[in-house]
């Protein structure tokens, strides 16, 4: 990774609270353009809260308070008056797959439709491209009319990824996407992510240390709301200069 890569997201002094509870405290780091940025850490370390803040979901979450700055492409996300256009730039994949109770086709066509695409041929093209990308096309191409919410867990997760891609995002957030997916599917999705790196910036939140090691260019380690360290992934796993807690975590002594 080149050292002077362009900064996609700059996080400065970010603190997130839910009422009295502090989910993330005074965190600063950068995410570079066209990299896979891994975030690892045990449950409750503030990983998901960070994603929610980045996507301005605090707006829809009662009691969630965000302090500090998250700068996307040079603009603080709190500047956005039209939150929806912010979210349209950011694709999100959740830990638990959410196939919307619409047809498979409509699941993927929803975002382009919302963005104003009307032409059937254009929609068809987006649906097929995104489903192919998410390694789901071959399984569902003959039943695009069936409900997305009734697919199997692994298929729903890939559908969620296809949907995130259908937004044509320039930032893709994945939150522990492999929880509900079998290992084979996980590997297929990981391959897709490696390809996608050329086009979008990816933030990969994971509780699987090895997954971060396989995919991420740089990785941050969160622990109970604190950023312990952020470094080139290989450095984090093999380097000599690092925080004892990071070493304990990546070597599996707690988590």
């Amino acid at each position: 990774m080149v050292a002077d890569a362009k900064v996609k997201v700059a996080v400065r002094d970010l603190t997130i609270r839910y009422g009295e509870d502090v989910a993330l405290s005074d965190v600063s780091f950068d995410i570079h353009e066209h990299e896979i940025f891994g975030i690892i850490g045990p449950a409750g370390s503030g990983k998901t809260s960070f994603l929610r803040a980045l996507n301005r979901m605090d707006e829809f979450t009662t009691g969630m308070a965000v302090d500090g700055r998250i700068v996307l492409d040079g603009h603080d996300v709190s500047e956005w008056r039209n939150l929806y256009s912010l979210r349209r730039r950011i694709g999100v994949v959740f830990p638990l797959p959410v196939g919307l109770p619409l047809s498979v086709y409509e699941n993927v066509a929803l975002a382009p439709r919302l963005a104003g695409v009307r032409k059937k041929s254009e929609l068809d093209e987006v649906v097929e491209r995104c489903l192919r990308r998410a390694a789901l096309w071959d399984e569902v191409k003959d039943r695009l009319d069936s409900l997305g919410s009734l697919l199997s867990g692994g298929q729903q997760q890939r559908l969620t990824i296809a949907r995130a891609l259908s937004q044509d995002p320039d930032l893709l957030l994945l939150d522990e996407f492999s929880i509900a997916v079998d290992p084979v599917t996980t590997m297929r999705i990981e391959d897709v992510l490696k390809e996608l790196r050329e086009e979008v910036t990816i933030v990969l939140v994971t509780n699987l240390v090895q997954q971060a090691r396989r995919l991420a260019d740089r990785t941050a380690f969160f622990l109970t709301g604190e950023l312990v360290e952020v470094a080139e992934t290989e450095e984090l796993f093999t380097g000599t200069v690092r925080d004892q807690r990071t070493r304990d975590y990546v070597e599996g002594r707690f988590g």
Binding site: L86, R89, F94
Partner: peptide, 16 residues
């Protein structure tokens, strides 16, 4: 609620 969040995350407005 997960359905709503999925939609919001795609940039759909509340009404959409």
């Amino acid at each position: 609620r997960a359905f709503r969040e999925a939609c919001w995350n795609m940039g759909a407005t509340r009404w959409q």
